[in-house]
């Protein structure tokens, strides 16, 4: 039995501890916001937070989450209020949308550690997330916008 927290809620799953966290989330817990794209930590679609740090859940065994806090895209905010979600909506970032959960989760770590990221910071933080639809220019602009929005929010 592996026990951990997902978006603040305690979960207990009876699966082989080497099962990737991605499939525990998607199949055992029926949380499908986190996506499968490659299974080899090459595309970033499976990105979640483990105690606030980004991990690729398609290769992280669920045992790694034991006792820890997992945050998925579903738990990033109540009601689309994260500055990234607001910026994503304001600028219509997604096209097909399949990669966007992973993009946002990676960007969230960037903004948590750097409130005014430069384009170089974005290059360094987001290189692991593939978008086949080519929304990169918008992702970049939206991260800058989210940083602005977050700055305004904290200024209030």
């Amino acid at each position: 039995m592996t026990s951990f927290f997902v978006n603040g809620k305690a979960v207990h799953v009876d699966v082989d501890p080497s099962t990737p966290l991605l499939w525990v989330l998607r199949d055992s817990l029926e949380m499908t916001g986190t996506k499968f794209g490659c299974g080899m930590a090459l595309c970033g679609a499976c990105t979640v937070h483990l105690d606030g740090k980004a991990i690729r859940s398609c290769v992280a065994p669920v045992s790694r989450a034991e006792g820890k806090h997992v945050t998925t895209i579903e738990g990033l905010s109540e009601n689309l209020t994260h500055p990234l979600q607001k910026a994503w909506i304001e600028m219509d970032v997604p096209q097909c949308g399949y990669c966007q959960s992973g993009q946002i989760m990676s960007a969230a770590v960037l903004l948590a550690e750097n409130s005014k990221p430069t384009d170089q910071d974005i290059d360094d933080a987001m290189g692991g997330n593939i978008c086949r639809c080519g929304t990169y220019p918008r992702i970049r602009r939206a991260i800058h916008r989210a940083a602005e929005l977050a700055g305004q929010r904290s200024a209030k």
Binding site: A41, K53, A54, P61, S106, V109, D121, M126, G128
Partner: peptide
């Protein structure tokens, strides 16, 4: 940032 070594390496 979100590209730590242990983001991917176990």
């Amino acid at each position: 940032y979100g590209m730590r070594c242990d983001t991917c390496h176990q």
